[in-house]
Design a protein around this nucleic acid. Structure first.
Lengths: 346, 346
DNA sequence: GTTAGGTATGTTATCGATATCACATCGATC
DNA sequence: GATCGATGTGATATCGATAACATACCTAAC
């Protein structure tokens, strides 16, 4: 209507496929085929169409396309935070893996709360993604229901949920932290402390703390000293404050394990500021193998997690399920690797 | 068709608005209104509709909605990398600002190349975003053309492009680095070195180097020593390697300025590893005020940039332009603040 | 009692692409 | 030369929502 009334059609309105078709002297359907790889259009026709496309500056409208094809080409991914380089790496793994498939990523972050996750899931489902990747296994009931009735493949990552929704790509944070404790115990440390956040918002953090406590028990060591400080994810600064609190209450602590490398780095810097020698006076370890842990001085012992690989593998599974259609729908759990990286801080 | 053939309609197919309407005993249009805030639907009707929505587990399909309303509710943003916390902060500023508006972010990253940026821009325009936020002012010609003919507001950020497309929210990287040089010169440093990447992919990096060179000239100091090392963005590790190269060639360098805090941190750690005293033997400064710069020991002097604010302001302008429609289309340039943060490393 | 104006709801016609089926053409095969 | 299959292209219906207009009802004002 607006277009018909306009003196020079298509001047203000963005051109549509019909405009391209008219200019190229073919039908819209042929234009559609020419713009989609793998469809058979004769070379001459394709060239005419491409010329028209360039002259008009036409860009395909996927919202319209996905309505009729019933495929949006979207994949949704929800991470706790993109300001955390571990999750940024996972997001990058996902994007890189999606790149060649033509699928596009809808990325959201929850700030570590399930309520925001629920809202995000709903917002994303409105875009009809063909699959969705979540971080962790903790979701609101409503979020679970939404996901189940969406009828799309779901991959939960970074943890091993007790009650998986569908696919899982992750590892046991509990076990990983337990391994760190055992590794350090073998070096002779006996009085362990743990630094983490104050709430259970960060479920991976909670699992790590549980792994810590359990490992201490299993080894028959003196009870672990637990310091909770700050709302997860705790920062470098809060790691420094937490270690102060730890040293005040339990000055004889021999080794401090932190929920992440960032807090470990903060703790390390604070100890050095106070003139303590690391690891002679106190050993410090982190989790996540952030770049800073490798290059600070002394380097921080930590647990290396394959963040990028988690994203890659999650995306790969999703792609398989999307492409493969209905077959191969069984729940599967892919364990990703982690390993202790010993550095000078312990 | 598939639905008509199915014995229990809607069992496998996701429910549509028509299904909800039927169940609630109203027309689809009324359902549409009930699900959109600010439309007047009687309380009784709204409740009936909401009940039907919940029973069916209906989720609005925005791809369909945006086709008829000609509004997708998407905003696109393109950053160099989300693994860089400065840009992650900007992305967060954008998302936070968009949150209350119902606009959804399409985020992409270029890996610092204009070619990938061009591909991303095209991919995003296929989704018909209502506005787009870019990082920097360097784009391919084709990207510029695509953007211009898209007819949507564009905001370039983080720089002051010589030839802006539309709106700009940023600061002069050249000037900021120049200010850092002058601040240090005032403290008595005279032999300056600069560490950056090897290519001009990172345009902000290049601008900082130019600012460095120009400031040295203006102050009449001995020519700055330039070390280029690694493909931008250069890492902590490469910062360490670069400073080694700097010290080998120019052992008498008094102050080393780095393209970012990450390389500065790497340089700092490397110097300490070699037993040098910072700042007595050598002063080190960075750019960006990453968290690590504040909490490492010694703290790193740097240029604080309002990353989050850049994102916020860019999003705000975009929202205004999207909502305001055609009025207020003039090019505008918003300068964001930066400031020198002096710490112990200089 | 009539009319104006507001509110709540329904009807119809799209939005811009693609699935699907139909059709024309051409060369190969028997 | 009749038949078949492969290939290229077009016509039509449709995806699921919303814009725009139409209508019914109700209240207030004169």
């Amino acid at each position: 209507m607006g277009r018909a009334a306009s003196p020079r059609p298509g001047e203000n309105q963005a051109p549509t496929m019909a405009d391209v078709a008219e200019r190229a002297g073919v039908s819209a359907m042929t234009v559609s085929r020419a713009l989609k790889e793998g469809s058979r259009v004769s070379k001459a026709t394709r060239e005419k169409i491409m010329a028209a496309v360039n002259e008009l500056g036409y860009v395909l409208d996927q919202s319209a396309g996905s309505l009729s094809s019933r495929k949006t080409g979207f994949v949704a991914a929800i991470v706790p935070s993109i300001n955390n380089s571990n999750f940024a790496d996972t997001a990058r793994g996902i994007t890189d893996e999606l790149e060649s498939t033509g699928l596009q990523l809808l990325l959201g972050y929850t700030d570590y709360t399930v309520e925001k996750e629920e809202r995000l899931i709903e917002a994303m489902l409105r875009r009809r993604p063909e699959g969705i990747i979540l971080t962790g296994g903790a979701h609101t009931d409503r979020a679970r229901r939404l996901l189940e009735s969406a009828g799309i493949p779901v991959v939960e990552t970074w943890e091993l949920p007790a009650r998986p929704i569908d696919q899982v790509v992750g590892f046991s944070n509990e076990e990983a932290m337990g391994l760190l404790v055992k590794t350090l115990a073998r070096k002779g440390y006996r009085k362990f402390g743990y630094i983490g956040g104050t709430t259970s918002r960060d479920t991976r953090g909670s699992q790590r703390r549980e792994g810590f406590v359990r490992a201490i028990e299993e080894l028959g060591l003196p009870p672990g000293r637990l310091v909770s400080f700050g709302v997860p994810p705790i920062s470098i600064e809060q790691g420094g404050q937490a270690v102060v609190s730890m040293l005040e209450r339990w000055p004889d602590t021999e080794a401090v394990l932190c929920v992440s490398d960032l807090s470990a780095f903060g703790a390390l810097m604070e100890c050095k500021r106070r003139g303590m020698r690391v690891p002679q006076d106190i050993a410090i370890a982190g989790f996540g193998d952030y770049e800073v842990a490798a290059f600070c001085h002394p380097g921080i012992t930590t647990v290396n997690v394959d963040c990028y690989g988690i994203g890659q593998e999650a995306a790969r599974r999703l792609i398989q399920l999307i492409r493969g259609g209905e077959k191969q729908r069984g729940q599967e759990i892919v364990l990703t690797s982690y390993r202790i990286v010993e550095r000078e801080s312990t």
